[in-house]
């Protein structure tokens, strides 16, 4: 890695003041499971790294009014063991445990999970976010088995790797962000993620000098579950994830949200599948139908057609798990 200045401030205000307003000049260090590798591989070469380690106000999980508030620096392991999370949001627990590696779960943070950069192997091999080579996309013509099947018309063909993104969107979470002057703004989870338009953009709506501080999830009694299609049990990425949340009243579903992971440059809210589930009696047939609806509109690349089938299976299983 290239040498950099390291800062570990104690307050959000100090931290924000240490951040540049240009991407790449500074980087935020949370658990470091993604950033440290990126530094070592020269994917990013910041002048300064600002650690959030000493900022106590953004750690821990508590109930605030009708929300569960998760501090951005809460580790995956803490999240997976928290009694409120276990009680209200099993979809997050499944996503955390799915990470599979005790080492990653012990140091990786919830905020870091939401802000991690794509795992696209072209990106990680130094070909850039869009992997453009001689004017064409290496991904489109190359090894795209793990790439996007939705929203892949533009330059971004990678998939968002966040484990929690889909579940948080399904649960209607809000993300709190602290700006350079200590001001806080709140963004709905769905709006937090975005598809970069240029090589130097990032995959979230954070500004370079903003810090993700907390996640608020409303306690609304939603049934919720995550299903990840995984092959290797330890330390691996799912091929496709489905997170769902819905109410069941008098046997039928309402307020349904079906969100997919690892299928698009952002966690992919499947509006059609969500709508289709509302008013339906939740059973194997409607779950399968919901899976079919979620796969609608998929446009696989040359080598990732199998993911369409995985979407159907994952959504079906997530819906049934949530209803169980």
């Amino acid at each position: 890695m290239k040498s950099f200045e390291y800062a570990a401030p104690k307050t959000l205000k100090e931290a924000a003041a240490l951040l540049s307003d240009k991407w790449g000049e500074t980087e935020i260090l949370a658990g470091g499971t993604d950033l440290v590798t990126s530094l070592k591989q020269h994917i990013t070469e910041p002048k300064r790294v600002v650690s959030l380690r000493n900022i106590s106000e953004i750690k821990g999980i508590e109930i605030e009014k009708k929300d569960v508030r998760i501090g951005a620096m809460t580790t995956l392991a803490e999240l997976a063991e928290d009694k409120n999370i276990k009680e209200h949001f099993p979809s997050l627990v499944t996503a955390a445990i799915g990470v599979g590696s005790p080492q990653l779960m012990s140091v990786g943070t919830v905020g870091g999970d939401l802000c991690q950069r794509p795992r696209c192997w072209y990106y990680r091999n130094g070909f850039g976010l869009f992997a453009k080579h001689e004017g064409a996309s290496l991904v489109r013509e190359g090894e795209n088995r793990y790439h996007a099947i939705f929203s892949n018309d533009g330059s971004a063909l990678f998939v968002n790797p966040s484990s929690f993104g889909p579940a948080l969107i399904a649960l209607g979470a809000t993300i709190a962000v602290s700006g350079p002057k200590g001001k806080t703004r709140k963004v709905p989870a769905e709006k937090f993620f975005q598809t970069p338009k240029t090589e130097s953009d990032r995959e979230t709506s954070l500004k370079p000098n903003e810090i993700l501080t907390s996640i608020f999830i409303p306690i609304k009694g939603l049934r919720n579950a995550t299903y990840e299609v995984r092959h290797r049990h330890g330390l691996d990425w799912p091929y496709v994830t489905a997170s769902v949340a819905f109410q069941i009243k008098a046997g039928t579903a309402s307020d349904a949200r079906v969100v997919l992971g690892h299928v698009a440059p952002v966690p992919w809210h499947s509006a059609g599948a969500s709508k289709g589930l509302n008013g339906a009696k939740v059973d194997a047939a409607s779950a399968a139908k919901c899976g079919e609806a979620a796969a609608q509109g998929a446009k696989p690349l040359s080598k990732n057609g199998y993911k369409v089938q995985l979407v159907k299976a994952a959504v079906k299983r997530a819906v049934l798990a949530a209803a169980a």
């Binding site: 192997w121 080579h133 330890g234």
Partner: peptide, 24 residues
């Protein structure tokens, strides 16, 4: 896994060059 166009090995790491673990 090799990229045809650039000739580079894409999974020269233990993230995508996968080895079985005890549960597998």
């Amino acid at each position: 896994v090799y990229d045809v166009k650039t000739g580079r090995m894409l999974n020269a790491d233990m993230e995508f060059y996968r080895l079985a673990g005890i549960k597998d």
